[in-house]
Every structure is written in structure tokens, then in C-alpha cells.
Design a protein around this nucleic acid. Sequence first.
DNA 1: CGCTTTTCTGAGAGCGCTCCCATGCCGCCC
DNA 2: GGGCGGCATGGGAGCGCTCTCAGAAAAGCG
Lengths: 346, 346
Amino acid sequence: MTEPFPGARPTLEAVAARAGVSRATASRVVNGGAGVRQPLVEKVQRAVEELGYVPNHAARTLVTRRTGAVAVIIAEPEIRIFSDPFFSQQIRGISKELTAHDYQLVLLLLEGPGDYDRIARYLAGGHVDGALAFSLHTDDPIPEITRRAGMPTVYGGRPSWTSAPDHRAVPYVDADNRGGAREAVRYLWDLGRRRIAHIAGPRDQTSAVDRLDGYRDVLLDEDPALIAEGAFTEESGARAMTELLERCPELDAVFAANDLMASGALRVLKERGIAVPDEVALVGFDDMDSVAAVTDPPLTTVQQDIEGQGRLMARLLLRGLDREREGERAPASVITPTTLVRRASA
Amino acid sequence: MTEPFPGARPTLEAVAARAGVSRATASRVVNGGAGVRQPLVEKVQRAVEELGYVPNHAARTLVTRRTGAVAVIIAEPEIRIFSDPFFSQQIRGISKELTAHDYQLVLLLLEGPGDYDRIARYLAGGHVDGALAFSLHTDDPIPEITRRAGMPTVYGGRPSWTSAPDHRAVPYVDADNRGGAREAVRYLWDLGRRRIAHIAGPRDQTSAVDRLDGYRDVLLDEDPALIAEGAFTEESGARAMTELLERCPELDAVFAANDLMASGALRVLKERGIAVPDEVALVGFDDMDSVAAVTDPPLTTVQQDIEGQGRLMARLLLRGLDREREGERAPASVITPTTLVRRASA
DNA sequence: CGCTTTTCTGAGAGCGCTCCCATGCCGCCC
DNA sequence: GGGCGGCATGGGAGCGCTCTCAGAAAAGCG
């Protein structure tokens, strides 16, 4: 690797000169070499090698109008998000898929409400070809921003506005929250439990709503006193459990909408000397590595393939980007299956 | 916001035409407006507003040679990294700092050994102005890659090669691991404990080495049987604890090199019916939200400002980028202080 | 009021690349 | 053997922006 002027990156022009061809031919070779005769291809490749040529990304983007980058927008203002392995795993899945297609991941974390402007400007500036967004609340401005920027976007988790009867269809990837919850509650029922409580997640997150719906699907004549709302945190799970025990001391099972709340509930049950699963059976959701298998007793929980969801989101988006050039429409959504993992807590 | 041809973004040319000025003047206004008379500034700003103009990033980068983006390289091949809130918090700190200076964060996750090539190409391609890298092992190729790409880089955690006597100096940010460990062990000593064991982290990570060194600083005549090595995971902490109990049943305190291993140790101690802190006092490291405060009993641990470290890394890098243009040298490293947080476990 | 000095503005080159189109070359068929 | 089609190659425009430089306008001075 020769460096004529150290620090000065060689251009295509230099490669072409060294290979004794035109810039156009050099460009063809660098981009796959279609329609160039073998001997020239080799000459150019040698020149590339010798000069240590790497294409200038900005120049390429300027003309092709494609950046080869995808934004991941994480709009969760709460602390939860980043102490939550959930997102981390999705991101890893996304990263794997993007990498495999030579796309880059640009992380856009929203730190405060004022950040929406920044994001809007960023997306409009043509920095990225598409976007992935997560856990949108009902009135989240993100969809409007991406739409205005003409930015193909795939959502992680069913966006809440899709509950409306005539909503605009957007592609999203989500676990089968309702089905998974149904399976969990039915499992408790089959265990002979009849006073099954539910610690729900926050009402403004569709995953929480869908899991609650699944719970209701099984317990048709459900008692409102058996439902408490938490915030998907350990602490809130503990609070909800305390509440439930006050309202219904005779409950014999709890289905928590995620593992973190389940572990909070478990803590309270243990503090009160209530045996799990003998007196109260407990089921969580997510099968979070750092929680479900570690608690005492380990949690029976609903597993979802989080990394797989990430990959799927990326795949959906990339497919959308390809189609865009052919003028086709956005891809459809995908619901991924869940599995009940039986451990000691139920 | 008028859109003349929906989908076709307005260019500076269009703004200039609408404002009745030259492209050069429009450019000046867009970039701060220095040296342009007020009435023209306003005209241009109005045109920008009306057309919804957003500068084209690629074009700007092409001429300025600055991308306004920084790569965050996460080279940890193990699973640990992303179920570990540690990185998440650093990233949040980095993101905050970058955002405040209008820089973007590009996440480069290494999925396998073959990925180094990809990273090298990416950095050489001029996609980013600088890089932040984490937890480098001794023979990690990342430093060489960033150096070859002429990419200013700041490291998170002291890179291991800085242990060598005549190492190349690189800027890094790290907690005062040794000092923190020293304080923790001294605290146990002051509590009257005399058989203080240590669950160390993996020997190839400097944070582990430094914490071990801190332990040794206090226990000058330390007994090798009192030291066991883990892998910074809950599981490995439990294994190490088991080992230690076999070798030294009479130990009366344990200093674990991180909270995860401390929680594993705690689990084993509880299983054996050993009272914490009465029989064995336990101290961790990191003060990880999701672990230290949640265990039973809550962990006494060494706190470090992880998010602050992230911010600092970004700040150091950005300062370096500024100086680069003035030909100055790389910034120095920073060691951030730690605090002992006393909870029930010691 | 005319001249110099300073402040503003505009014209134009050029960043590195892709891609359209014209040109040249070869082979093939009648 | 002349003409024609097809394929490989090169010339050159142009993506949208910044920045230098020269010229125009405004300001200062005698």
C-alpha cells in the first residue's frame, strides 16, 4: 500500500491514471466490474490495491442519492429504555441484518421533547435512507416527522394509532403479545388456578394493552379488582403486587406483563412469606436473560425472539428501500410467535 | 412550507433565487450569516422557511471534509456487552454530548472477527470524523485500524497496551478502578474483616486488573487462595464464590470486581445459609441500578459515574477534532473518581 | 466632492463520484 | 468485402455545496 501523499486519500482519478484507463472504467470496476473486460478489471483492481483506494462516501451519496445508512430512532424518554436489555437485543438484531447488507446504523436517541426538531432536520437532510422507530406512544410526533421527510420507516412494536378503526397502515414488527398472554393465562388456568390476577403495563403502550387483552380473552368474566397497572419496572411491579394483595388476598396466580414487574411481584410475595408457586403461581413475559432465569424461583415466562424481531425490522425496511426504487408499496407488518417457557414459578 | 415539486428537495440555488441573492450569500446565511447585511439575511431566512430548505449533507461533506458524525465502536464479541447496562449508560452519555454539539452517533457493532475489515473500510471511507472505542483487549486490532485510517480516537476504559512501559499514549477515559477498589477493601478492613477474598474479573481487561491491584494495595500480604477469577457475569461470580468457599471456608468478606459477580456470589452465600453481612460481608463494583439496589440485601458497592464517562469521552474527542484543524496534539486521558456507596451487604 | 479604504456580494471553480451518451472496435451476415 | 449490430471504453456533465477572489458598494478622509 503506497501512499503518495500521506494523509491525502487517493481518488478514483488516481486509480484510473495508474491503471491506464478512464475514470468511468475505474468506477465500473469498483462497483462490481460489470461490462469491463477481464484484463482491465485486473489492472484496476491492482491499482486500487496499490494505492489503498477507498471510495469517498460523500461524493458517491451526492450523485446516487443513497447513503447506505439507516437511522434507529429511540424515542423512549424514560430511564427504562437503556437499563432494559430488550432494546439492546433488538438493536443487535438490527445491526446484524444491516451489516449483512452493508448498511450502517445511525443511532438517534431522543433526550428531551426539544429533540424532535433535531431529528426532523436530520432525516430531512438526507443523512439516511430509512428509519426504524420503537415503542411509540399515542401522540408521538415521530410518524408525522418521518412521513414528512419522505423517509421509509418500520416500527418496532405495534404503534398505538393502529388501534383506530381507519388508521393509516404502517409496517411494524411485533411479538404476538395477545396470543402469548392468552397462552400464559390459559396455562395458569389449566394448573387449576381460578383467582388469576394481572399486573398490566402502562395503558399507553400497545404491548401492555395487547397482553391485557390476551388475559381477558381467557378470563372472560374478569374481575377489575384483579388487575393492577404498573410501569414495566421492578419497583412498579412490587407496588402493583402489594395493591393486589390488599384488594384480593385470596388470589392464587399472577400474570405480570413483563419479567421486571414479575420480579418485583416476586419480591413482595417473598417478603410476605407467600410461597411461589405453591400459594401463588407467577408468570412473566419477555424471558429476559438477566431476570427470568435468575430469580428465585426462576420465572415461568413468555419468550419472544427479540433479536429476531430486530432482524426482521431491518429486513422489512431494506426490502422497502429496494422496492421504493421500483415504485412499489411499503411492506406489510409481521407478528412473531411466542413460546411459554416453564420454570419453577408456575 | 411550500413544496414546488413534492419529493424534490429545494437546493441552495432555489433559496438564492427566491431571495434574489447569489448562492454564495445564501450559503453564508445558512451557515450563520456572518458578514451579510441584515436585510439580506432576513430575505434568505424567509426563503429557507418558505421552501423548507434543508442543506444536503453529502454535498456539504464533500467540500468541507467533515461529516459531523462520530463512530462508536463496540468490539466486545461476548454476549455480556448488551445485557450489560454499563455500555448503555455510556452510550447515553456520549449521545447527549454529541447531540449538544450537533454531531451524530454511528454505532459500529462487531459481530465477529471478520468484521474488522468492514470497520476498517468504513473508517477509511470518510463516513465519520472520529471514533470512540471500548474495552479493548490486549491484541485488539482496533487501535491499529483507527491509526491507519488517521481517525482521531478516544478509548473508554484504559487500553491494556498502556500497561507496557513505553506504550504509545492514547487518550482514554476510565474510572479510578484501583482507587475505588482500594477504598472498598479498606472499608472491609476497617469493619474488622481480616480474611477478605476477591472475585476478580478476566485478566485481559484492565478494569479487572486495576481493581485487583487496588485490592492488593491494601492487602499487601495477600493470600492467592483468596483470589478467584470470574468473567464479570452473575454465573461466573457464583462459580468463583463456590471455589473460594472450598479453598477458604473461614473467609469473612468478599470484594467482587463488579456487581453482577457480587450478585452471583450472594446467591451462593444464601444457598449455603451464610449470613450477609454478618458472617461474610460483600462489596461490589459499578453500582449498577438494576442489580446493586435490588439484591437482598442491597449491595454495598463502588459507584462510578458511567454516563459522565461517556460524556467525557465525547467531549475529549470533539475537542481533539477542533484542535486537529489547528494542528495541535491529541488530548490527555481522564480518570474519573469513584464513591463507595454503603448499603446492607457490608 | 473626489479619492482611498473597508465592507459586502456574486461569479465561478472544484470537491469525488456516477452515469449518459458518443465513439471506436470487433465480429458477423449477406 | 461492405455494412450493420453490439459491446467495451472514454468524454464530460452535473450532483449541491463551500470558498476564494475580484469587483461593486459603502464608508471614511482630506
